[in-house]
Each structure stands twice: as structure tokens, then as C-alpha cells.
Design a protein around this nucleic acid. Structure first.
Lengths: 360, 360
DNA sequence: GAGCACGTTGAGAACGGTAACACTCACGAA
DNA sequence: TTCGTGAGTGTTACCGTTCTCAACGTGCTC
């Protein structure tokens, strides 16, 4: 920078002003400085800038060390939005979402002077860890179930926290409603891990919809977010011939359920309808193509970044907003009306709103 | 730091020595400084350190803005290895793998003073862009096909470049050999994008194996790495009833092929055997469970980091190593011996090594 | 007892920017 | 004329480290 100043015949401060687009620089001077910068191939040193301003123009992302589709996609959404806003993102992953490892990740990011943190894949424990972040460090959680206390797990954090998330309950309602509308007496549910708020919210949306329709609410089974867990759950469901419709907490679980049903000789969608959640890129190519609930992860990432920047702007504590994105249903071949009289021993009463109209 | 020095009754320089574990500090002094640090809750400022040493202890990762399974997994492998080595990773993603965007990504990382760069998902164009990185910035590519020039695309970079990769050709040989050993007269191939070295190398391994076995080498079809492309290719393959075995360039392509075959009424593995590549977490739950080639992405990430650190150690140009990891075959239900006389009009000669022995 | 190597410590100058403030003009209002 | 004002610029301090070099014992050799 000193060299640039010398070459342009100005002081280093003027060079700094040009770099930072300060208005009070004569156009001619600015040009001279810019020319000098070009000819010297000058590039500002961000470390020095960080030292002086205490702003690193870097954002931290806390991720979960597992290839879950959602978190992945959000990483990209966040990164590209951050790039547009002039930030670089650094990632710190944690092996499990407990208090301790998350705190360490926050610490690591804080040490590298990140200006703010976005935590992906939050369980309640992640959020409580985040509230212990060093003062002044803006944090946002993306995913999770937001401040809506779950009626089951008592572990949801008490204090509100800035969050961006998909309306999981609404998505579950969409899926359940869809199956009910097709004429199924009731809908079974293959849930995700019981201690994940997103899973809890989906259970809730499902239960609520059945209840409102006067349908029987079958017991919930749960497991990890993968196909192996879905297979496990699917085997149990396949054994029960009263099951005609299954809503799965994500597409990977649905994949496992699909396989279990097929192994048991139950055809999809003729014997059993299956609906997933996520709309992964390939779920349209499952056998059969999977009806599912679409979430726009990229949009979620963008919103998360926007929220974080808003919070960074106001250094003190601003009201913690809760941004909610609506999911949508993607009907495909894995759901269809039940065969006449397929629910054989069905202890399920024909709920009120079960007119077999095709959902759009 | 000044405060710590004052409290411990030493100079700031001595504090610095304690932090950096310089040997020539009296044990008693060190203790005093450490105590002061603890009581003041002191934390070294990395920006200042970076400014003084020109080392940021941050690594850059250039990723591809798409959820491909491999790249994702490697990100985690790299991050956790980097953490262990005391580095934080920053990611810069590119929308497409062309020269220009990659250069910009390198630039952005360089501006943030990263100590080295790992590029994931390299096409040849990425590597050539990398060779133009600012001098002294260590770069490593992970994935790709390494310095082995492909016989087809003439675009492989001339100069060798430090690379970590799976032996794609060997994986393809494994898959092809497996199908041949099951008794198939020949093996068709649903390839990935023709301009990706990894895809090229798999084509090569496949072709070579067929050739060595004296089997007919059918024409290759290719497309993107996803199920949609696999479906497209699968439709064409399903129409040809002489096809009894298909090797797919990754699991997602295989998923699409599986669906196309099923739609066409061709059963897997009874009528057609299918083998994939990658061993994604859920491919054991495809219908039927997919025989595939396993690559250890986490290991790849670790190796990439190790190679990068080695290159960072030697500032000048060190011999660009090429680390190769061996893949392995995971036999599952999607591959089986052909039905007797299933390859009806087969112009394929019964190759020499085609004894129908089950591969392990 | 002088000279010397070595372990231990400190003072001051980088590192490359930004912030705060002072200064010089030109211009218009009192 | 005098003063205030605001644009344009330079001076100096400061951000929190590490690096260089000098200074001070201490114990050893000659």
C-alpha cells in the first residue's frame, strides 16, 4: 500500500480511502491511485484490515459431520449468498450434536474472528450451546423446529433464538392430508430421530391432521434419518396388513420402507402408498417415483444469511426473528387411492374428510 | 497480551514465547505467564498473528456447488483432518468448473490469506486454473484421474499436479471383471460426463477389461452424474434385449438405470445385472440392493490434507506426488449370473475368462 | 581473571491496514 | 473583511502479534 501511495504521489491514507470508496476523494486522484494499484497489482491484506477493524468478513458455519441431504444443500445456499455479500465462509463440523463439541466449534470459529455464525442441523442442544457464544457474536440457527415448544421432548430451549426453518408441521400436514384425501382410512408414520425437533414437528403435523380428520392415530416408530432405519421400520409396517399408507419423515427413510414393502410382497402404490419428505434430487427415480414434500434448501440458506446479516448489523440484542419457509407437496407415483377393501381387518373408522378426491 | 505480560511481570515478548512453546523460557516464568493467561481469560488474536507471520492457519477448499455424494463426503474428511492439524477450512464454491470461476475462487481464498488450497471435483480445467494460483500458494487436487493422460479427451493438463484420487480405472476393472466372472458375455456401460477425468478413467478400465477378456466392447452412452441421466441411458439399454449386464459410472446413474429397466419389464438381477460406483450410504437399499464399487472418501480427504501439508512445508516446488487409493467391490443383490440363453442374438463370443464363478 | 558460549529476558521495530484528527483550501454568508 | 463550513488530503497513533537484536547473568574453559 505504501508503494501504491508513493507511485500515485499521495499518502497511504488516501489510498485507503480509494479502496474503501470513501466519497471525499477527487475523481482525478482516485484514478491516479487506481492506476497505481493496477500497475503494482496491489491487493489489500485482509489480515491487517481485520486487525484494525475487528471485522474479518468471514462467517462461520457449524455443520454436522454426516452427509444428510438437507444440511449439504444449505451449505451451498449459504455460501453463495455469503459470497454475494462479500463474505467468505469457514466451516467447523461436529461429530455429534452435543453441547461440548458445539461449544468447541463455536470457540474455534470465534478464535478465527468470524463476524457471525450459522448453525446447521440444530437439535435443541446445539441452540443452547449457541446461546453461550462469546458476547457480541451473532448467531443464527437454520433448520430445527423453531421456538415452538414440542409437547414431547421437554428439551426445547426456553429462550427464543433467531432461526430460519421450513415449516415442518405444515409439510407433514400436506403429506398426511394428501394420503387421507386419496381415501386412506389412516396414515402410518415412519419418523426420524425422536430428539430432533424437525422430526418432532413432522410427527406433530401428522398426528394433528389425523386427529382433525377423526382418523385413528397409529403408534409412531422412529430411527435415524437413513434408509437402514427406514428398512427396519418398513419391515414392521409391512407385517401389518391394515397399513395402506405410510408417511416417512424423509426420503431416505422412504427408500428403506419401499424396499421392506417390496420384500414383503406388498406393492407400492397398489397395496401401500408411501410419501417422503425432502425431495432429494433422485427421489423421482425411486421405484416407484416418490411422492414427497419439497423443501427449498437453497432458499433456506439465503434466508439464513440474510437474517444473520441483520443481526450482525445491530450489535446489541435485537428481537430474535423466526423466519419460516413453506414447503410444498410433489405428487408422484408412490401414492394412490387404496384398493377397494384393501384395509382388511381395519379397526380404522372411515374418517369424515376421507372423500377420495385426488389432491392437486 | 500486554495485560497478561503486566500481570505476570514479564515483557510481551516472553508471553509470546510461552504461547509458542519456545524452549528457552524458565519453567517458573512459564507457569506465571500461564496463570496470568488463565486468570485474564486471554486468547491470542489470530488476525494479528497472521499479519506478523503471513500464516493464517486456514485452508481453502474449492468445491462444486452441487450435491454430489463424493465431494460432500470429502469435505468432511478434509475438515476433520484439518482440525486435527490445527487448521480451519474455508470453502469457496463454483457454479461450474470452468477456468474463470475457479480462478476467482482461488483469488478469493488467496485474498483471505489461506495457507493452501484443496480443490475437490476437478475436471482438467480446474487443474489448469490451479496452476495459475499466486506463487507460493500450495494447491492439491482431490478426485480426478491424475496425471495419466486419457486417450480420448485431449484436454488433460500437461504438467503434473499433486493429486489424491481413487484408482477409478481399477474400480471399473473390478466391476467389469465381477460381471464377466458371473458369466455375462459382455458388459454395457452407462458413463458419467465425458469431460470428467473420473468418468473417462472408468470408461477406460471397463473397456480394457472387456478387451483383455476378448469380449465385445459395446458403445458407451454418457450423461450427468444423476439418476435422470441414468434413466435416459437405461431406457436405451432396456430396449436392447442382448444387454444382460450394465456397469454404471456411479450409484445415482445406477438408480436411474434400475428404474428404466423395471419400467421396461426387465428384472434385476434375473434379466439384467447392474453394478454402480461410489457406495453411497443408501445404495444397499435400492431395489434391488446395489452391487457397487466402494470408495473411501473420508480417507481420500485425509490423504489430501496430508499431501497439502507436505507441499506447504516445502515452499519451493516439490515433486508433485500422486496419491492413489484403491477401491473395493461390494457385491449385493443387483448382480447375478445371466439366465441360461438370455443373451439371445448375442454376437458376443464366449470370452476366455468367463467361467461363471461367483466373485468374493 | 579474562573470554566465551548459552540460556533467559526485554526493547523496539516490523506486519499492512484503519481511525482520529489536523490542516489547507475554496466558497458563501454575515 | 471575517468567519464558518465542508471537501480533499496528510500525520500520527493504534490494532496484537512475531522478529531481530541487544543485554544480562551464569558457568565453563583457558
Amino acid at each position: 500500500m505504501r508503494d501504491v501511495a508513493k507511485l500515485a504521489g499521495v499518502s497511504h491514507q488516501t489510498v485507503s480511502r480509494v479502496i474503501n470508496e470513501h466519497p471525499n476523494v477527487r475523481a482525478e486522484t482516485r484514478e491516479r491511485v487506481l492506476a497505481a494499484m493496477r500497475s503494482l497489482n496491489y491487493r489489500r491484506n485482509l489480515a491487517a484490515r481485520t486487525l484494525a477493524t475487528r471485522e474479518s468478513h468471514t462467517l462461520g458455519i457449524i455443520g454436522f459431520e454426516t452427509t444428510l441431504f438437507g444440511p449439504e444443500s444449505m451449505l451451498y445456499g449459504i455460501e453463495s449468498a455469503a459470497r454475494a455479500a462479500g463474505y467468505l465462509v469457514s466451516v467447523a463440523t461436529v461429530r455429534d450434536l452435543e453441547h461440548r463439541p458445539v461449544l468447541e466449534a463455536v470457540d474455534r470459529l470465534a478464535q478465527h474472528d468470524v463476524d457471525g455464525i450459522i448453525a446447521i442441523a440444530p437439535k435443541a442442544s446445539v441452540i443452547t450451546a449457541l446461546t453461550h457464544a462469546p458476547g457480541g457474536l451473532a448467531c443464527v440457527a437454520v433448520g430445527g423446529a423453531g421456538p415452538i415448544a414440542s409437547p414431547h421432548g421437554g428439551s426445547t430451549p426456553e429462550e427464543p433464538f433467531p432461526t430460519v426453518r421450513v415449516d415442518n408441521a405444515a409439510g407433514a400436514r400436506l403429506a398426511t392430508r394428501h394420503l387421507l384425501d386419496l381415501g386412506h382410512a389412516t396414515v402410518h408414520h415412519a419418523a426420524g430421530p425422536p430428539d430432533w425437533p424437525e422430526s418432532q414437528a413432522r410427527v406433530e403435523g401428522w398426528r394433528e391432521t389425523l386427529y382433525a380428520a377423526g382418523a385413528v392415530v397409529p403408534p409412531v416408530t422412529s430411527g435415524w434419518w437413513d434408509a437402514a432405519a427406514g428398512y427396519e421400520q418398513g419391515r414392521r409396517l409391512a407385517a401389518d396388513h391394515s397399513v395402506t399408507a405410510v408417511f416417512c419423515s424423509n426420503d431416505r427413510i422412504a427408500l428403506g420402507v419401499l424396499r421392506a414393502l417390496q420384500e414383503a410382497g406388498r406393492r407400492v402404490p397398489e397395496d401401500v402408498s408411501v410419501v417422503g419428505f425432502d425431495d432429494m434430487p433422485d427421489s423421482g427415480f425411486f421405484l416407484p417415483p416418490l411422492t414427497t414434500v419439497h423443501q427449498d434448501f437453497a432458499e433456506l440458506g439465503r434466508r439464513a444469511l440474510a437474517l444473520l446479516l441483520r443481526h450482525m448489523g445491530r450489535p446489541g440484542d435485537a428481537p430474535p426473528e423466526d423466519v419460516v419457509v413453506a414447503p410444498s407437496l410433489v405428487p408422484r407415483a408412490s401414492s394412490a387411492p387404496p384398493r377397494a377393501g384393501s384395509a382388511l381387518p381395519g379397526s380404522a373408522p372411515p374418517g369424515p374428510g376421507s372423500a377420495p378426491t385426488r389432491s392437486s
